[in-house]
Structures are given as structure tokens and as C-alpha cells.
Amino acid sequence: TFTSIVTTNPDFGGFEFYVEAGQQFDDSAYEEAYGVSVPSAVVEEMNAKAAQLKDGEWLNVSHE
């Protein structure tokens, strides 16, 4: 299960995956970082959410 939350205070020191406002979700980078295949429906969902981000916001993507 993939989830996401919007934050204005990303923790770059941890093992977190963020999408910056104005960027798209990079499923290849996510797969490389976590060894998890990302279904195309999830990629579309995360890109739709990322498109709604305002300046200074980040989308924190995770999975269980």
C-alpha cells in the first residue's frame, strides 16, 4: 500500500522519499531506493497529487 502526505518541513536527514512542488514522482528512483516496484496506477496518483503542490510544499511518499 502506497501513501503520501503533504509537508512544508521535509526531513532530508531520514530515509524518506519526497516530491518537490513542480516535479513529478520518479518511480524509477523510488524503486531503486526501496527495491519496490511501483504500479502505474500509483505513479499516476502520486503525479496528480504532486501537481497540486504549492511552492514550499513537498509530497512525502511511503509504502507498507
Rank of each mutant, 00 (worst) to 15 (best):
E44W: 07
A21R: 09
Y34V: 03
G56V: 02
L59E: 01
H63Q: 05
L53S: 00
P39R: 00
S62G: 08
A41C: 12
D26V: 06
S4N: 03
D11M: 10
S40G: 09
T8Y: 08
E20R: 14
T7H: 03
E57A: 03
K54F: 06
K54W: 04
T8D: 08
G35T: 04
N9Q: 11
F2R: 00
D55W: 09
T3E: 05
F15T: 14
G22K: 06
S37C: 13
V6N: 02
P39M: 03
A41T: 10
K49Q: 10
L59W: 02
G56N: 07
L59I: 03
N47Y: 03
T8F: 07
D11I: 13
T7I: 09
D27T: 15
D55P: 15
P10F: 03
E45R: 07
V19E: 02
N9V: 09
G14K: 09
L53W: 03
L53P: 01
S28P: 04
Q23W: 08
V61E: 01
A33S: 08
A50Q: 01
V19L: 07
E32K: 15
Y34S: 04
E45V: 08
N47S: 07
N47C: 06
V43Q: 06
E20G: 15
L53V: 00
E57P: 00
H63R: 06
E20D: 05
M46Y: 05
E64S: 14
Q23N: 09
D11G: 07
Q24R: 13
V61K: 00
W58V: 03
Y34C: 07
L59V: 01
F15I: 11
V6E: 03
S62K: 15
Q52C: 11
S62A: 08
F2A: 00
Q23S: 11
N60A: 15
F15W: 11
N60L: 15
A50I: 08
K49T: 06
E64F: 11
M46F: 10
V42I: 11
G35W: 05
L53Y: 01
N47K: 07
L59T: 01
V38L: 06
F15Y: 12
E32N: 11
D11L: 10
K49L: 14
A33E: 07
Y18G: 01
G35E: 04
G13T: 14
E16R: 14
S40W: 14
E32V: 11
Y18C: 04
Q52A: 13
A51I: 06
E32M: 14
K54I: 08
G22C: 06
D55H: 13
T7K: 03
T7V: 13
F25T: 00
P39K: 01
Y30M: 03
E16L: 15
E20N: 07
D26I: 07
Y30Q: 01
K49H: 07
Y30W: 07
Q24W: 12
K49I: 13
V38M: 05
Q23P: 00
N47G: 03
S37V: 12
V38F: 02
V19Q: 01
P10Q: 04
Q23D: 08
F25V: 01
Y34N: 05
A21I: 04
H63V: 06
E44K: 12
H63P: 03
L59K: 00
L59R: 00
P10N: 03
F25Y: 02
A51C: 08
K49R: 13
Q23G: 14
V6F: 05
D11K: 11
F12G: 05
H63M: 07
S62C: 10
W58G: 02
A33H: 11
D26W: 07
P10R: 06
A51M: 11
Q24Y: 12
E16F: 15
N60V: 15
Y30G: 02
D26Y: 06
T7D: 04
S62N: 08
A21W: 11
H63Y: 13
S40F: 12
V38K: 00
D55K: 14
P10V: 05
F2T: 01
G56D: 05
V38R: 00
G13L: 10
E64V: 15
Q23K: 13
G35A: 06
Y30N: 00
V42D: 04
L53R: 00
V36C: 07
V19G: 01
V43N: 04
S40M: 13
F12R: 07
E31G: 09
V19M: 06
Q24I: 11
Y34D: 03
G56C: 05
A21Q: 08
E31L: 13
T8H: 07
M46A: 04
L53N: 02
Y18S: 03
S40V: 12
F12Y: 07
T8G: 06
V6R: 01
Y34F: 14
N47I: 05
L53A: 00
S40E: 11
D11N: 13
T3S: 10
G35N: 08
D27N: 14
E45D: 08
E64M: 13
Y34Q: 04
Q23R: 09
N9D: 11
F25C: 03
V36L: 08
Y18A: 02
I5G: 07
V43T: 10
A21G: 04
E57F: 05
A21Y: 12
V61A: 01
G35P: 00
V38A: 04
K54E: 07
D55V: 13
V6M: 06
E31T: 14
Y30P: 00
T7C: 09
G56S: 04
E45I: 11
I5N: 11
V42Y: 05
A41W: 15
A21N: 07
F2L: 04
E16H: 15
F17S: 02
T7F: 05
A21M: 07
A50H: 01
N9S: 12
